[in-house]
Design a protein around this nucleic acid. Structure first.
Lengths: 374, 374
DNA sequence: AACACTAGTGAATCCAACA
DNA sequence: TTGTTGGATTCACTAGTGT
């Protein structure tokens, strides 16, 4: 099901709203999109910072806090109502197997997380963005606020969501990617500036953060929605990685800047966008195929690595061991007294007097199939 | 079995309930305490894990999940009611300038944080406990759940709470203590065992975690309340650091074990507290971090020193060379026909027309990361 | 004594394709 | 929709045993 949609998108038949920025209020704008049309949502909503009075550094210079009108809410109730409204709007356009990311700080993320759960989303992970270079706590009254939190959730408990496990593992030097990511904040040339040379947007996110998000949870050709598009980091990274984006943004100045920013981005070559896939993505080879190709003979004896278990291959591709019979997996489980067993990585054949794992024979078949397939 | 007797700490009069464990339900037990009598609360409430079915490791061994009755709630509403009740009970006994710590995971921490805000608490920080040795994700479906979250809050926005800024800074090699703490889980001899040699309590917290909490937010002689006392880590660390504790616990077995545990603790001389400093290991830098920082581009060609092998970098941090693909290490091994290869000291990039070992790029990143503590 | 090897385990919301 | 089955999937650390 998913693969069909993916191919459609990849061949150019993508919806008209792909790679556009919709100007307007988040909820109203999302009503223009068809239901179940979005693969992944990345949302960076207002944090509802409650700053009272100005903050100064030890040298009395003024800290440029986030005090924009869009970040002001009268109460927690007002913020909850706002959160509920945009999450419901997003939920409508999200595909059943889609996922959503929301980033926030302790000011708002707990309310967002609660609302996500209340609306039926199923939290998959909370991911901590650890900043290499956070703003210090100038007054020495708290711990340096050195991280932000992202919640990653599927639309519901049974969703079959996309997670590029092998790619993340390779990215992380062959150990599983953890839920804490160390990434610098957005500074220097990456940070968009206005005419006066000041930062254009108060909370521009680093492209590295979005890149990891999209590499983990999308495939090339997927459509990513950002309902608080701002300076367009989501769109820029989506384009660079060969994904499509849809942005919603209220302020014209941000839309203009984001449009110019994204126009300057080049999509990486297709070869570089190939995602590392695990064994699950490889074609299934039944054990019987090994018999058909003569790699295993009917009547041959399979052995466990420790020599404790043996089984005889039957002509139909099943095996038997004592009173047990069935697939290589079933018999492997039975002789060990386990609930399950991967027969491919349990049984060995005798080749030239030595034991060889039958999984290596399967790989031979797969290699032959790859050649035949082109 | 109402409590334990401890030596009087030389800070003057202390209430009768100091250094005792109250048996019973959290809310009912707290009614026995006078209002505004507690300096700091540390709470490790049930996480409301919603586990369905069993989970096995790749070797088919069974994962011992938390399925205790105290962690079962009928719904989010039931969990919220529970949370509200114990937070209100705790709020009554907390001093006006006191603070509260609550630890949790993504299953419950968002609901706890929302309730804290709704009841008038003022969040000071959310602190991430990064585990050095978390349980892996056995099925490869999510990111390794490698952290838990603590919320630190004062009783209200105007509280004049205790934060030992200088002590934390000294603890952290003279840079401000950040909101992400790297601490191992509780294992080995620190982990309490039952008669059968199995873990006594399913969720015993490490003493190092509590030590940092108490050193940051209490003064010697303060009274620390733990409404879910369990195996008594809070009491043990409080005693060792010269603080007083009050515990509430329902299960007699835990009370007995905690009592014995605390009795064996000796309060440390102040000078010894410096020993809590931990050494920082050299941070591990995955290959993907070089892409994130733009030191290597997707599509770039890596070469072996002898020029015999080349590989193309993909956006997800994997590389491909002919029919081989995977991490820099795996592909390095495959192209050489070896079992293993250190990709860092094998592959080179082209920088200004010359070959540069990618290991030197790693060192650049490491230098940037040093401040963030790995 | 030092090292090698095996076995065990930790707050976990952990499968997918097919009949 | 439900049940069956093929077969994919782990990191850091401790403790114990054997050489």
């Amino acid at each position: 099901m998913r693969g069909v949609q993916l191919k459609t998108v990849a061949t150019g038949a993508r919806p008209a709203f792909a790679d556009t920025i919709i100007r307007g209020d988040c909820v109203a704008a999302l009503e223009q999109l068809p239901a179940h049309s979005i693969d992944v949502v990345f949302a960076d909503p207002p944090y509802n910072l409650q700053l009272e009075g100005g903050l100064t550094r030890p040298d009395q210079s003024v800290v440029d806090g986030v005090d924009d009108a869009w970040d002001q809410f009268a109460s927690f109730e007002a913020y909850d109502a706002f959160t509920r409204a945009w999450l419901l709007a997003v939920r409508r356009v999200l595909k059943p197997d889609g996922t959503i990311w929301v980033i926030g700080s302790y000011h708002n993320i707990f309310r967002v997380g609660t609302m996500l759960q209340d609306l039926g989303f199923w939290i998959l992970n909370d991911v901590v963005w650890r900043k290499t270079n956070p703003m210090p706590n100038f007054r020495g009254k708290r711990f340096t606020n050195a991280h932000e939190t992202m919640i990653w959730a599927s639309r519901g408990p049974k969703s079959r969501y996309t997670f590029n496990y092998e790619a993340m593992k390779a990215f992380n030097d062959d150990v599983q990617m953890r839920s804490d990511w160390l990434i610098p904040i957005c500074t220097g040339s990456e940070r968009l500036k206005d005419e006066a040379g000041d930062k254009l947007h108060p909370t521009q996110k680093p492209e590295a953060l979005l890149a990891r998000v999209l590499l983990a949870s999308t495939e090339p050709g997927d459509i990513v929605l950002d309902p608080f598009f701002g300076s367009g980091t989501t769109g820029a990274v989506a384009k660079r990685l060969g994904r499509h984006y849809v942005g919603v943004e209220r302020e014209e100045a941000y839309i203009e800047a984001a449009t110019a920013r994204i126009a300057a981005i080049e999509t990486a070559p297709a070869a570089a966008l190939q995602l590392l896939k695990g064994k699950k993505a490889e074609p299934r080879v039944p054990f019987g195929a090994l018999l058909e190709r003569g790699l295993v003979q009917a009547g041959a004896i399979l052995s466990a690595a420790n020599g404790r278990h043996q089984a005889r291959v039957r002509a139909d591709g099943s095996v038997e061991s004592g009173s047990h019979s069935g697939s290589i997996h079933k018999v492997g489980a039975l002789v060990q007294g386990l609930d399950a067993c991967n027969g491919w990585t349990f049984w060995h054949t005798h080749v030239d007097g030595r034991l060889a794992l039958i999984d290596t024979l399967r790989q031979q078949v797969r290699d032959e199939m790859a050649v035949a397939g082109g």
